[in-house]
Amino acid sequence: MEEIRRMEPIEGIHGLPEQVSAEQFAPSAFSRNRKKLMMWIFIISDALLFGSFLAVYTFERFISPSWPDRWKIFEPGYLAVMTVVLLSSSTFMAVAVEGLKQGKNRRFGFFYAVTILCGIVFLAMQAHEWAHFIGLGARLNTNPWGVPLFSGLFFMITGFHGFHVLTGVLILSFIGVLKLMGKVSDETIELAGMYWSFVDLVWVFILAVIYLL
């Protein structure tokens, strides 16, 4: 079983015979699962994109004579709820993947659905926050606090993050449907889980750098 799963990428592509044996793979810390490895590298690359954005944010903040007080714009309670929703959804996803590994399908199904639900709730909350922010008079190129860079960066960075959440929700839903049809491997779900946790990870940094600092 394990052998077959390990060989899957080759088989799918070339239809190679089973003679590909274990020794063919050099012993390396990286060689255990190439899809997961690629996911990690993708995550590094995507993390660096957000890292660049946050570096830009910090830079622009340093060169601005003043920076708006975030607590006059955002509610700490609302922010806390958003964070809790996203962090919880990541926890649920981890529990779901763990359930899947142990073959507990009911547990998996329940927590997987809750994960997607949390993602949708987060998106709705973010949309509401944007609406609130726009209602205060913030636009990409101007805002009432006299630091147009702030609103521009805010929309760009949270927008990018929101886009990642949205893709995450879509991917999870799509994979969920495939799972119901029995057409998706456990590994794919695990990878989707990694992506979902990554979205959460980015939020941790955005929360601290944009809202709190």
Partner: peptide
């Protein structure tokens, strides 16, 4: 805040991921 942020990031990446 920065320290707490890193702690959170550690938990998410090391346990959830």
């Amino acid at each position: 805040i920065l320290a707490l942020m890193l702690a959170q990031a550690y938990l998410v990446s090391f346990y959830f991921m």
